[in-house]
Amino acid sequence: RRVTVRKADAGGLGISIKGGRENKMPILISKIFKGLAADQTEALFVGDAILSVNGEDLSSATHDEAVQALKKTGKEVVLEVKYMK
């Protein structure tokens, strides 16, 4: 599913991630910080795999590559996510 997140002037997306190619895992949302941008969408969940950020494929990204992709986003971020059981 596709989720658009609008960041506030102060603060980032409000998520922590884990996983990555070096761990043989997808990039997973490991924490959502209450009240910040990702939480306010009410459409992102701990355990979601982030498949892409603004069209940039993260399916084979390392953890560091995913962190950089998320950091360089502007005010509006489009995440392609899939819930992983």
Rank of each mutant, 00 (worst) to 15 (best):
R1E: 02
R1D: 02
R1Q: 07
R1S: 04
R1V: 00
R2V: 10
R2Q: 09
R2Y: 10
R2K: 14
R2S: 09
V3R: 03
V3P: 02
V3W: 00
V3T: 01
V3Y: 03
T4G: 02
T4S: 07
T4M: 12
V5W: 03
V5M: 11
V5Y: 04
V5R: 01
V5S: 02
V5Q: 02
V5H: 04
R6A: 11
R6K: 14
R6W: 12
R6G: 06
K7Q: 11
K7P: 12
K7G: 11
K7S: 11
K7Y: 09
K7C: 12
A8H: 12
A8I: 13
A8L: 14
D9R: 11
D9C: 13
D9V: 13
D9Y: 13
D9I: 11
D9P: 14
A10G: 14
A10W: 12
A10M: 12
A10E: 13
A10H: 15
A10F: 14
G11R: 11
G11C: 11
G11F: 09
G12T: 11
G12V: 10
G12Y: 08
G12Q: 12
G12P: 09
G12K: 10
L13Y: 04
L13D: 01
L13M: 09
L13W: 04
L13F: 08
L13S: 03
L13I: 13
G14D: 08
G14K: 00
G14R: 03
G14A: 05
G14N: 04
I15E: 02
I15M: 10
I15N: 00
I15V: 06
I15W: 01
S16I: 12
S16D: 13
S16W: 09
S16T: 12
S16F: 08
S16L: 13
I17R: 03
I17D: 01
I17E: 02
I17L: 09
I17F: 05
I17G: 02
K18Q: 13
K18H: 12
K18A: 13
G19H: 00
G19N: 01
G19R: 01
G20W: 01
G20R: 02
G20M: 01
G20H: 06
G20V: 04
R21G: 05
R21N: 00
R21Q: 09
R21A: 13
E22H: 00
E22S: 04
E22W: 01
E22D: 12
E22Q: 09
N23Q: 14
N23E: 13
N23C: 11
N23P: 03
K24S: 12
K24M: 08
K24W: 04
K24D: 13
K24T: 06
M25L: 10
M25K: 07
M25H: 06
M25Q: 12
P26E: 02
P26T: 03
P26L: 03
P26C: 03
I27W: 00
I27M: 04
I27A: 04
I27K: 00
L28H: 15
L28R: 07
L28T: 14
L28K: 06
L28N: 00
L28Y: 15
I29T: 05
I29W: 03
I29L: 02
I29F: 00
I29H: 03
I29M: 04
I29V: 07
S30Y: 05
S30C: 09
S30V: 05
S30H: 11
K31Q: 10
K31I: 00
K31C: 07
K31T: 07
K31A: 09
K31W: 14
K31M: 03
K31V: 01
K31G: 08
I32H: 03
I32N: 02
I32W: 01
I32P: 04
I32C: 07
F33G: 10
F33V: 14
F33Q: 15
F33D: 15
K34T: 11
K34E: 10
K34W: 01
G35D: 09
G35L: 00
G35Q: 04
G35R: 05
G35K: 07
L36A: 15
L36N: 09
L36M: 14
L36P: 05
L36F: 11
L36S: 15
A37N: 08
A37C: 07
A37P: 14
A37L: 06
A37W: 06
A38F: 00
A38H: 02
D39P: 02
D39S: 09
D39N: 05
D39M: 01
D39F: 07
Q40H: 07
Q40N: 10
E42I: 00
E42W: 05
E42S: 14
E42Y: 01
E42Q: 15
E42D: 14
A43T: 07
A43C: 11
A43D: 10
A43L: 09
A43P: 06
L44S: 15
L44V: 13
F45N: 14
F45E: 12
F45Q: 14
V46I: 10
V46Q: 07
V46E: 12
V46C: 11
V46D: 03
V46G: 04
G47A: 04
G47L: 03
G47R: 03
G47Y: 06
D48A: 03
D48W: 04
D48Q: 04
I50G: 04
I50L: 09
I50D: 04
I50N: 06
I50Y: 02
I50S: 01
L51N: 07
L51R: 07
L51I: 11
S52D: 02
S52F: 05
S52K: 12
S52L: 02
S52V: 04
V53A: 07
V53Q: 01
V53Y: 01
V53S: 04
N54T: 00
N54K: 03
N54V: 02
N54P: 01
G55C: 03
G55N: 07
G55R: 04
G55V: 01
G55Y: 01
G55S: 06
G55M: 04
E56V: 14
E56I: 13
E56R: 14
E56L: 12
E56K: 14
L58D: 03
L58Y: 00
L58C: 05
L58G: 04
L58A: 02
S59K: 12
S59Q: 11
S59R: 15
S60I: 08
S60D: 15
S60T: 14
S60A: 13
S60V: 09
S60L: 10
S60E: 13
A61K: 08
A61M: 08
A61S: 08
A61L: 07
A61I: 00
A61W: 02
A61H: 10
T62G: 05
T62S: 11
T62A: 05
H63A: 10
H63Q: 13
H63G: 06
H63W: 09
D64N: 09
D64Q: 13
D64L: 09
E65D: 10
E65L: 03
E65C: 03
E65I: 00
A66K: 02
A66F: 06
A66Y: 03
A66P: 03
A66N: 07
V67E: 11
V67T: 12
V67G: 04
V67D: 08
V67A: 10
V67K: 10
Q68A: 12
Q68T: 12
Q68C: 10
Q68D: 11
Q68I: 09
Q68E: 14
A69S: 09
A69I: 15
A69C: 14
A69V: 14
A69Y: 07
L70R: 01
L70M: 09
L70D: 04
L70I: 08
K71H: 11
K72G: 11
K72P: 06
K72F: 10
K72H: 12
T73H: 09
T73G: 13
T73V: 12
T73N: 07
T73L: 08
G74D: 11
G74A: 10
K75T: 12
K75C: 10
K75S: 13
V77G: 06
V77P: 05
V77F: 08
V77N: 05
V77Q: 06
L79V: 06
L79E: 06
L79A: 05
L79C: 04
L79Q: 06
L79R: 04
L79G: 04
E80L: 07
E80N: 08
E80R: 07
E80K: 09
E80P: 02
V81M: 00
V81F: 00
V81Y: 07
V81R: 05
V81I: 06
V81L: 07
V81W: 00
K82S: 10
K82P: 05
K82Y: 06
K82R: 13
K82I: 11
Y83C: 15
Y83N: 13
Y83T: 15
Y83P: 15
Y83V: 08
Y83D: 15
M84N: 12
M84S: 11
M84R: 08
M84T: 12
K85D: 14
K85E: 14
K85V: 08
K85I: 10
K85N: 12
K85P: 14
